[in-house]
Design a protein around this nucleic acid. Structure first.
Lengths: 141, 141
DNA sequence: TTAAGTGCAAAATCTTTGCAAATGT
DNA sequence: ACATTTGCAAAGATTTTGCACTTAA
């Protein structure tokens, strides 16, 4: 299904280049968010490190992928699940950061419960990251 | 009230040095978390950058301060509000990251609501960061 | 053809490490 | 006096910038 990426890039008026396809392939082949260092490792041969920075930045601005900062401050990326646009990201679901395998799971089904902010505060984005041991890693203990 | 810091350092078997007092003074004089770059700026003359890294690391390990990674992946620090120990941090309250003034507020009064993790996942730490415009900044618009 | 995108080199930052000198107990 | 802690210098890592070359449209 190559056409999927074609459409995606077209939709955002981005040129269909080899490095961009590589990035999309890696990110969409995974059910978890991928850290930038990890991406570099995987794409090392095909995509220049600087190009990767620029692609990730562009994709994020266009709403194609979203960035999750994990507990260590490392950027992780995942293709946007629902309808992110250039103007508004909608990735307000729970992320789970496994401390053993370092994976960041996008738990799309768990929605963030409501809470009250003090008078005068207004939130535009909410980020909920839980850290602990994931399903898979716990099974191996 | 100099004695407060003295006690704090004694309690954790840390030597009472000038740089450490400086860090504690800055952090506790503020009701918001302070970013590391900001700390460097403030302490630039009195504390070496490397020393600052080490102090922050030590303090965090001892449970004297806690680290909040903001939406940009930058580390922010605040003195622990309640009873953090070397073994367990209890900073599971909401943080509010203002996109205008960049401050990170510790909203100790807003507790994180409960949510259900999928089978097999177990969270040891929870981090909830809301981004938006804070009280003070909104008033100035 | 030409604007957008890439890759390399190099600058600018940020973070860590090693070690001698200084400091608190 | 002795173990800790600091400050400097230097290595390592990360991120950004500039610019010539390449490529998709």
């Amino acid at each position: 299904m190559q056409g999927k990426f074609d459409q995606l890039l077209e939709k955002h008026k981005l040129k269909k280049t080899a490095p961009r396809f590589s990035v999309l392939e890696v990110l969409s082949s995974r059910d978890v968010a991928t850290s930038q260092p990890n991406l570099e490792e995987i794409l090392g041969k095909e995509v220049d490190r600087v190009t990767l920075y620029r692609i990730l930045k562009t994709f994020e601005e266009k709403g194609i992928i979203h960035k999750i900062i994990d507990a260590n401050g490392t950027a992780n990326y995942a293709v946007c699940h629902s309808s992110c646009t250039e103007h508004q990201h909608r990735d307000e679901h729970l992320h789970f950061n496994c401390t053993v395998c370092k994976k960041v799971y996008c738990l799309n089904d768990v929605h963030i419960p409501a809470f009250n902010l003090p008078e005068g505060f207004e939130a535009s984005t909410i980020n909920l990251v839980a850290s602990g041991v994931c399903q898979a890693c716990k099974a191996q203990l």
